[in-house]
Design a protein around this nucleic acid. Structure first.
Length: 488
DNA sequence: TGAAATGTTGGGGCG
DNA sequence: ACGCCCCAACATTTC
């Protein structure tokens, strides 16, 4: 039956180029049905956050336009993936379904669907479009998953398959116009009442083509990345995370482009290596989630669940969320997140340390806030990042590492430009006091137009006190653990 | 991919 | 000239 179509199911791989499953579908010679299913009904699925919904909306729009330009149509369906995919197969009489593999709890859904399809005589083929090396290929000497980044990274680099770049697909066959598709607008992914997305749209442009432009621009200015990546006041980082989250670009393509930049000798190998290791951390997070699907809710080191976490006072929690803690770099970061759906990685560590160490709140509270507000919120990276800072994760920061927000600010935002741009009420302060306004004298504050407790809050907690308290509480939970396997 | 406390050193002021 | 002290600068240890 050469006329039977084949189905390609888009998930977290919203791109046409370098998409191996899509290339295989087109290579089959059959007409290709292209579909996306908005699944917030499958049991166990965690609905994506508000900022991610905004991004998804734009990314699907961009993908739909790219497909339309090649003569095809992106079919949109909403519901439990198992039901909707079965419906599509029946409606189109597809003989095969292809998709890119997932590595979190959604694996169970995919396994069930694959079993359904196979039982119904529909062929299933799955592909890796999202990781450098998949978890199943990454087995440590012990036979289990890796628990420490450095050996993981070494092993990954030894196993990475630099097979040639999958090419951009050609024209798509016209899809039966009677095949039903939801209107993207009917999904209401774009916020209304209020529409808070304008400042996100200023900061980012979703879509595959924009992702590739971003990568090119970044690699052209990667000089000094190893240092500047820690500086939120500079534009030293790639800002590719949301593009990678939605698969608008794949890590393999990023890897190849970075290597090409290195070989063209216009980039310092040390900068390239540092950047690639960040891709390595991304793979490592997915590797951890693969081996512990509950990692986004529970401490990877389960014993830390019993730690004496504090329920933050509602006022303290909202001060953290809204950037009113009285610690300028924390507040700048939380406001950048709220405004743009993204926060610089260094500042993610500082704000996360403040919540989990200074306020002693369970990291899950912060993970949930980031889940809702980040455009790059990803089950693996978000949980792994939070657990790294909280000291409850694999190869995590030791519990006694407590960030001092003032010192972090002075080290990584030395002139205070990052603070000034996100906390404008402090902009008039001299650099010497920009990260510790409570130490400025009355005339200095007056000169800057700052009135502590009025125009800008006093610190909601004394850091020196909070640090001692955290060391005590974490010290009990982390007994016998502080250095084991942590030195590398 | 820390920070604070504690220890050590060496230059310079000063009796 | 010498010893004593102070303390900044740096190193080490501890959490």
């Amino acid at each position: 039956m050469p006329d039977r179509p084949t189905l390609f199911w888009f998930r977290d791989d919203l791109r046409l180029a370098d998409n191996p499953g899509l290339a295989a579908a087109q290579g089959s010679g059959q007409p290709v049905i292209l579909a996306y299913i908005l699944d917030d009904l499958s049991p166990g699925v965690r609905p994506i956050g508000a900022a991610s919904r905004w991004w998804l909306d734009k990314s699907l729009r961009a993908l739909g336009e790219r497909i339309a330009a090649k003569g095809g149509r992106l079919i949109l369906r909403r519901g439990a993936a198992r039901t909707e995919l079965a419906n599509l197969v029946v409606e189109t009489n597809a003989s095969a379904v292809r998709w890119s593999r997932r590595y979190g709890p959604a694996r169970e859904i995919d396994a069930r669907i694959e079993a359904d399809m196979t039982a119904g005589g529909v062929r299933v083929e799955t592909f890796n479009a999202s990781l450098l090396v998949e978890p199943v290929q990454m087995t440590a000497a012990s036979g289990a998953g890796y628990k420490v980044f450095t050996p993981f990274w070494r092993a990954l680099q030894a196993r990475i398959d630099l097979s040639p770049h999958a090419i951009e697909p050609g024209k798509f066959a016209t899809t039966d116009p009677s095949l039903r598709s939801d209107a993207l607008d009917s999904w209401e992914l774009h916020p209304v009442n209020p529409d808070w997305s304008a400042s996100i749209a200023e900061a980012f442009e979703p879509g595959e083509l924009a992702a590739r432009r971003r990568l090119r621009t970044f690699l052209g200015t990667i000089d000094g990345y190893a240092e500047s990546r820690n500086r939120p006041d500079l534009s030293g980082v790639s800002r590719l995370s949301p593009h990678l989250r939605f698969g608008e670009i794949g890590p393999a393509d990023v890897w190849r482009a970075a290597k090409a930049a290195e070989e063209a000798e216009n980039a310092d190998p040390a900068d390239i290596a540092k950047f690639l290791s960040e891709l390595g951390w991304r793979d490592f997070s997915h590797h951890l989630l693969y081996h512990d699907p509950e990692m986004s809710r529970l401490c990877w080191r389960r014993d830390f669940e019993d730690m004496a976490w504090r329920t933050p006072a509602p006022a303290d929690l909202s001060a953290w969320k809204e950037g009113r803690t009285g610690y300028p770099i924390v507040d700048a970061g939380m406001r950048q997140l709220w405004a743009t759906g993204w926060m610089h990685n260094r500042v993610r560590m500082i704000t996360a340390s403040f919540l989990t160490k200074d306020l002693l709140a369970h990291w899950r509270i912060g993970e949930e806030w980031f889940w809702d507000t980040l455009v790059d919120a990803d089950e693996a990276n978000n949980a792994a990042g939070w657990q790294w800072v909280a000291g409850t994760g694999a190869d995590a920061s030791p519990y006694f590492r407590v960030f001092n927000p003032s010192l972090q600010g002075e080290t990584f935002d030395p002139e205070g430009e990052y603070v000034r741009s996100w906390v404008p009420e402090l902009a008039g302060l001299p650099s010497k006091f920009i990260h510790r306004p409570w130490e400025a004298s009355a005339p200095v504050l007056a000169q800057a137009g700052v009135e502590l407790g009025a125009t800008y809050p006093r610190p909601i907690i004394d850091h020196a006190f909070a640090r001692r308290r955290a060391l005590g509480v974490y010290g009990v939970a982390g007994k016998g653990f502080s250095l084991e396997g942590k030195l590398h």
